[in-house]
Computed example of a mutant assay.
Amino acid sequence: MSVRLAAERGSAVVEFVLVGMLLLLLFLGVIQVGLVLHVRNTLAADAAEGARHAANLDAADDSGGPYAERLIVSSVPGRADTRCTSGAAVDPSGVPLVEVRCEVVVPLAVMPFGANTTIKVVGHAVKETP
């Protein structure tokens, strides 16, 4: 039989609340990191697909940006604010490329006061030449 002091009454409840809040914040942080990584990976795949679209022989170099934006709107719900640009580029060895740059602002649910992070990705593809 344990003897409880009057000063220790209710301390288990306070400890549970304090530890529970820390675990909840840790859990929400893991969820937020997973969400940001998912959005980044989807943006990178869609930017690369936009670059491949614009790299076709019969496509203009600047058609990759709007194509990537349409892909992003359909693959990441609620990301209609994505901005993508595309244009011609040349790698250091002289191979003609098409480059698509996309950026999107992702809200951070764990951070207070509406904190956001901006994710920027770049997709490249070799331009087809006749």
Rank of each mutant, 00 (worst) to 15 (best):
R9N: 02
Q32T: 03
A89P: 14
A80W: 14
V110P: 07
G29H: 04
L24K: 03
H124W: 12
L71D: 04
V106Y: 09
L5S: 10
I119S: 12
E128N: 01
M21T: 06
I31M: 07
G123T: 04
G29V: 03
L71G: 08
R52P: 03
V76I: 13
T42Q: 07
L25V: 06
V14G: 00
V122C: 09
N41A: 04
M1K: 11
A115T: 14
A125W: 10
V3E: 03
G123F: 05
L26K: 05
P92E: 13
L37V: 03
F16D: 00
I72H: 04
A80V: 12
R79L: 13
F16M: 06
E103L: 05
L108P: 10
D61K: 11
L25N: 02
P96L: 13
V105T: 06
G20D: 01
P77T: 03
A89L: 15
E69F: 04
V122F: 12
D46K: 05
A54V: 01
E49V: 01
L71V: 07
L26G: 01
V13F: 08
V19S: 05
V14W: 08
P66T: 05
S75H: 15
A48G: 00
P96W: 11
A109S: 09
V126T: 05
L37F: 13
R101S: 03
S93T: 15
Y67G: 05
R52D: 00
G87H: 15
L43N: 00
S63F: 13
R52S: 00
T118F: 15
R79W: 09
G123P: 12
G29S: 08
T129K: 10
V17D: 01
R83M: 10
S74Q: 10
E15K: 02
V14P: 05
Y67P: 08
A80N: 12
E128M: 02
N56S: 04
S63M: 13
A89T: 11
G20I: 03
V100G: 06
M1P: 11
V95H: 13
N116L: 15
K127H: 06
A54E: 03
E49I: 01
A68L: 12
R4N: 05
V17L: 07
G78L: 06
P130D: 00
D91P: 14
G34E: 01
E128I: 03
A68M: 12
A51L: 04
A125H: 09
P92G: 11
D81Q: 10
D61I: 14
P96H: 10
E103V: 01
G20H: 07
V100F: 11
R101D: 00
D62H: 13
P66C: 09
A60L: 15
E103F: 10
G29E: 02
A47G: 00
S63G: 12
T82P: 14
V17T: 04
V106P: 06
T129H: 07
A44P: 08
S2H: 14
E69H: 04
V90R: 15
